[in-house]
Lab assay of single mutants.
Amino acid sequence: IDVRFTVNGLDVTVRVRTEEIAERVKELAKNGVDWREIQRIAEELNK
């Protein structure tokens, strides 16, 4: 599942395995978490 969001004007796409992880990623993006941090968290959750 590809999750797309915009952080500080940057369009970011993170690929995740499940809808649940996708929701977590969207939540982080909404809360203004840095995209590199979101990427790292997504990689952890995908394991």
Rank of each mutant, 00 (worst) to 15 (best):
I1A: 03
I1N: 02
I1R: 06
I1H: 08
I1S: 04
I1Q: 05
D2G: 01
D2Y: 08
D2T: 08
D2C: 10
D2P: 03
V3W: 00
V3L: 13
V3S: 01
V3Q: 01
V3H: 02
V3C: 06
R4E: 14
R4H: 15
R4G: 11
R4I: 15
R4M: 13
R4V: 15
F5Q: 05
F5K: 02
F5M: 14
F5Y: 04
F5L: 15
T6F: 06
T6P: 13
T6Y: 05
T6R: 11
T6C: 10
T6K: 12
T6L: 13
V7Y: 07
V7D: 15
V7K: 07
V7L: 05
V7F: 07
N8P: 03
N8G: 13
N8D: 15
N8I: 03
N8R: 02
N8L: 04
G9N: 06
G9Y: 02
G9T: 03
G9E: 10
G9L: 03
G9C: 06
L10P: 01
L10D: 09
L10G: 06
L10A: 10
L10T: 14
D11N: 11
D11H: 14
D11F: 07
D11K: 07
D11E: 15
V12Y: 13
V12I: 15
V12M: 12
V12A: 05
V12N: 02
T13V: 15
T13K: 08
T13F: 04
T13W: 02
T13D: 04
T13I: 14
T13M: 08
V14D: 00
V14M: 10
R15D: 03
R15E: 07
R15W: 07
R15H: 15
R15V: 13
R15T: 15
R15Y: 03
R15P: 05
R15S: 12
R15K: 12
R15N: 15
R15A: 08
V16T: 05
V16P: 00
V16H: 00
V16E: 00
R17H: 11
R17F: 10
R17E: 13
R17G: 09
R17Q: 13
R17M: 15
R17T: 11
R17W: 09
T18N: 12
T18A: 03
T18G: 04
T18P: 01
T18I: 02
E19F: 06
E19H: 13
E19K: 10
E19Q: 12
E19G: 10
E19N: 11
E19T: 11
E20Q: 13
E20T: 09
E20S: 11
E20H: 09
E20F: 06
E20M: 10
E20I: 09
E20G: 11
E20D: 13
E20L: 09
I21C: 03
I21D: 10
I21P: 00
I21N: 04
I21R: 01
I21E: 06
A22M: 07
A22D: 00
A22N: 01
A22C: 04
A22L: 05
A22I: 02
A22G: 10
A22P: 00
E23I: 13
E23L: 12
R24V: 14
R24F: 12
R24Y: 12
R24I: 14
R24W: 09
R24N: 07
V25H: 00
V25P: 00
V25C: 06
V25E: 00
V25A: 02
V25W: 00
V25S: 00
V25D: 00
V25Q: 00
K26H: 10
K26A: 11
K26N: 08
K26V: 13
K26G: 06
K26T: 11
E27S: 11
E27M: 08
E27R: 08
E27A: 12
E27N: 11
E27P: 00
E27L: 08
E27T: 09
E27H: 10
L28Q: 03
L28V: 03
L28K: 02
L28D: 02
L28C: 05
L28W: 03
A29R: 04
A29K: 04
A29W: 14
A29P: 01
A29N: 07
A29Y: 15
A29T: 05
A29Q: 07
A29G: 06
K30A: 14
K30W: 06
K30S: 12
K30R: 14
K30V: 11
K30P: 01
N31H: 11
N31M: 13
N31A: 15
N31C: 10
N31T: 13
G32W: 03
G32F: 07
G32V: 07
G32I: 07
G32P: 02
V33Q: 06
V33N: 07
V33M: 12
D34V: 02
D34I: 04
D34N: 09
W35V: 14
W35Q: 07
W35H: 09
W35K: 04
W35G: 08
W35D: 03
W35C: 05
W35A: 11
R36S: 14
R36A: 15
R36G: 15
R36H: 15
R36T: 15
R36D: 13
R36V: 14
R36P: 15
R36K: 14
E37Q: 06
E37W: 03
E37F: 02
E37P: 01
E37R: 02
E37C: 07
I38K: 00
I38N: 00
I38W: 01
I38R: 00
I38Y: 00
I38T: 01
I38P: 00
I38D: 00
Q39W: 08
Q39K: 12
Q39T: 14
Q39F: 12
Q39P: 02
Q39M: 15
Q39Y: 09
R40T: 10
R40S: 12
R40H: 10
R40L: 13
R40K: 14
R40G: 07
R40M: 13
R40A: 13
R40C: 09
R40E: 10
R40D: 07
R40V: 11
I41Q: 08
I41T: 07
I41E: 07
I41W: 07
I41R: 05
I41A: 06
I41C: 06
I41V: 11
A42N: 01
A42H: 01
A42Q: 01
A42S: 06
A42W: 03
E43N: 11
E43S: 11
E43R: 06
E44L: 11
E44G: 09
E44T: 09
E44N: 10
E44Q: 11
E44W: 04
L45N: 03
L45Q: 05
L45W: 10
L45S: 05
L45A: 08
L45K: 02
L45Y: 07
N46Y: 02
N46F: 03
N46H: 05
N46T: 04
N46C: 03
K47G: 11
K47H: 14
K47N: 14
K47V: 13
K47Q: 14
K47D: 14
